[in-house]
């Protein structure tokens, strides 16, 4: 079966989902940034006391905020988070991830179960890893990193 069929038949839960970084509404942006740095992830999910997601804060939002007020990092993350964020269900076809990223122009999608509970994150990287795993003969054999041929050539 080719990727075309797989994208439409395989569910989102077969992707390698990332464990979300979470923060409480009263946590500061500084605390959220420290967690994002530690987990090397570009977004944090803000959850309430029942661990229910109530918002998302991303590194691109951070860049926007810094230009107007560098002290913003000491404000609560809930003051600046996005209260609506794109999501997919774990049982949706993977093609929905591709559509979501492309049409909504976002990097991350929350993955929720049948009870709308957050179970992971996926996004551009997860989708590219899926394609790479599907076509190792094309992607995983590539030379990584450009080197100038002219500079390195040896011999006559």
């Amino acid at each position: 079966m080719g990727l075309y069929e797989n994208l439409r038949n395989e569910p989102v839960k077969t992707l390698a989902l990332r464990k979300p970084v979470t923060a409480g509404p009263e946590d500061t942006i500084r605390q959220a940034v420290e967690r994002m740095r530690a987990q090397r992830l570009g977004c944090v999910i803000v959850v309430d006391s029942d661990q229910k997601p109530v918002g998302m804060f991303t590194e691109s939002m951070l860049t926007q905020l810094l230009t107007s007020n560098p002290k913003v990092v000491d404000e609560p993350v809930s003051k600046h988070m996005a209260e609506h964020w794109p999501w997919v269900r774990a049982t949706d076809p993977i093609h929905d991830v591709l559509d979501g990223l492309h049409l909504k122009n976002v990097r991350f999608l929350c993955v929720v179960d049948e009870n709308d509970r957050l179970i992971g994150l996926t996004g551009q990287k997860g989708l590219m890893e899926y394609v790479a795993e599907h076509f190792p003969g094309q992607v995983m054999v590539q030379r990584i990193g450009g080197t100038s041929v002219g500079d390195k050539r040896e011999g006559a």
Partner: peptide
């Protein structure tokens, strides 16, 4: 930074992102 040439295959750009982790 890791770069690609315009003449490299499209898969080369994907490989830099997936294998080396550069967005």
């Amino acid at each position: 930074p890791i770069y690609v040439y315009e003449t490299d295959s499209a898969a080369a750009a994907l490989a830099v992102m997936v294998v080396a982790g550069y967005r």
